[in-house]
Design a protein around this nucleic acid. Structure first.
Length: 489
DNA sequence: CCCTCTAAACAGG
DNA sequence: CCTGTTTAGAGGG
């Protein structure tokens, strides 16, 4: 009550927000799915909360949505609140801010609508993203709920033996770490300095309960991210890509990683499944057991360790036959479903690739280009000019329609043989010792595949497009927020 | 009842 | 301290 109460109470005296309001035009364009009509937002003034009609959950959603990458850390969410919502504006950082932050946190972890993607960077907290499905309270998981053991959603069976907590308490206290920077300047590319795999994933592999079903991560967004990169970002991305991706693929890998990589690279999501009663599962990117994978997608997963090894082995020539064999794969069509999003994604990639190849770094002026590319849309796709692109496209395409590793491995040898521009000479340095990566890749692939198949198919949760307000919620009063929020421009 | 907000305890970092 | 998870009660519909 210390703050919140005070704040709330104090809020009363601080009417600065009220006048603002914002009936505005805003015909409909819902900011976010919002199944429920919400309050009529009567101009008369029926605000549920001091800040308006939206619930915390909704606000958070907006915040996340507004982020270029659709993911934010807690702190960033806070920030967004402060900047975007007049009500919180005053109470932003430091001092008076407790109650609402608590609530934010509470909401984040409570609703299945939000998923946590852990981010091991600079000790930053996890990313929070929107769960494509939008769990929302006891709502049934849309269609693809493989296992609807509906029966008892009320029976929140929680195997946990509570937590006997005697009033006892010790003072663990430690580390006075000081991250400082309350001001993340939003690199856009969230510093994933994790570099080579955050091996050591927390994955608990709870084989006991195989209730995975809807745990499936299906993140599709990302991609668009590109619009950020001044220099540093780019570098980061490149580096990142290089590290994570197979060393041999150089350029191609870069591209891929740039987009697809980003999606999961951050790795490890934890989703809460409604039924599971708050069970949280975390997937580590670097290594999680095959079991999960197989479960996730029945995609043909040949995955021959040896083969992979061979592939990676510098001395041994890449067994093309193998790849050939695998190439054939199946699902020729699946891809047709691709929504504009996918295309967009691809387009983005293409663009990016072009840029990066043409100019590795230190390029002013690209931001616009980027955005353009992104918006250009599907038609852009086919447009390819340089060999690299071709290669890239094929590779890109792979994950979409084709299957597995193909793209990945394919990327390296094929590309190299066909058109490697070799802008970067650092391939063979770390060839060996990459098994992890492979695994990782595979995972990636699977996910991608799955994602594409599942998500794009229905595109349920993703269609929300709120045009007008991107970074700004809806509050007009947000003077500065509109401009330089986190969106680069 | 269900939903939301709020407060608080508690586990880890 | 910050981040997350979870419990619990108040209040509104």
């Amino acid at each position: 009550m210390a703050e919140a109460g005070g704040a709330a109470a104090a809020a009363a005296p601080a009417p600065d927000i009220d006048p603002d309001f914002e009936p505005q035009s805003r015909p409909r364009s819902c900011t976010w799915p919002l199944p429920r009509p919400e309050l009529p937002a009567a101009p008369g003034g029926s605000r549920r909360n001091a800040w308006g009609n939206q619930s915390y959950a909704e606000l958070i959603s907006q915040a996340i949505e507004s982020a270029p990458e659709k993911r934010l850390t807690l702190a960033q969410i806070y920030e967004w609140m402060v900047r975007s919502v007049p009500y919180f504006k005053d109470k932003g950082d430091s001092n008076s801010s407790a109650g609402w932050k608590n609530s934010i946190r509470h909401n984040l972890s409570l609703h299945s609508k939000f998923i946590k993607v852990h981010n091991e960077a600079t000790g930053k907290s996890s990313w929070w993203m929107l769960n494509p499905e939008g769990g929302k309270s006891g709502k049934a998981p849309r269609r693809r709920a493989a296992s609807m053991d509906n029966s008892s959603k009320l029976a929140k069976v929680r195997g946990k033996a509570s937590k006997k907590k005697p009033p006892l308490q010790s003072a663990p206290e430690s580390t006075a770490d000081s991250p400082g920077s309350q001001f993340p300047k939003w690199p856009g590319s969230p510093s994933n300095a994790s570099t080579i795999s955050a091996r050591l994933s927390p994955i608990l592999t709870e084989q006991d309960d195989l209730h995975d079903e809807e745990l499936l991560p299906s993140l599709v967004y990302s991609s668009a991210s590109s619009n950020v990169p001044p220099t540093v970002t780019e570098e980061l991305e490149l580096i990142d890509g290089l590290n994570l991706m197979s060393p041999s693929s150089s350029v191609l890998s870069t591209q891929q990683s740039a987009s697809s990589g980003q999606i999961q690279r951050d790795s490890s999501f934890s989703l809460r499944s409604p039924n599971a009663a708050g069970q949280t599962t975390t997937f580590g990117n670097s290594l999680f057991n095959p079991v999960d994978i197989s479960l996730q997608s029945s995609v043909s997963h040949f995955s021959a360790p040896q083969t992979l090894e061979a592939l990676l082995t510098p001395s041994s020539p890449p067994p093309r036959d193998v790849m050939m064999t695998q190439v054939d794969p199946v699902l020729p069509q699946t891809g047709n479903r691709m929504s504009s999003r996918t295309l967009l994604l691809l387009g983005g990639q293409a663009t990016q690739s072009k840029m990066s190849s043409g100019n590795p770094r230190g390029k002013p002026t690209e931001q616009q280009a980027e955005s353009v590319g992104a918006s250009v849309l599907p038609s852009t796709l086919p447009i390819v000019t340089s060999p690299q692109n071709t290669a890239s496209i094929s590779s890109l395409k792979a994950p979409v329609s084709a299957t597995t590793a193909q793209s990945v491995q394919l990327g390296s040898p094929l590309l190299l043989s066909s058109a490697s521009p070799a802008p970067l000479g650092l391939n063979q340095d770390r060839l060996p010792t990459d098994l992890d990566i492979d695994m990782y890749m595979e995972n990636l692939e699977c996910d991608m595949d799955y994602i594409i198949n599942s998500e794009l198919m229905d595109g349920e949760g993703l269609d929300f497009n709120f045009e007008p307000i991107l970074s700004t919620p809806s509050y007009p009063s947000t003077s500065q927020a509109s401009n330089h929020t986190w969106v680069p421009s």
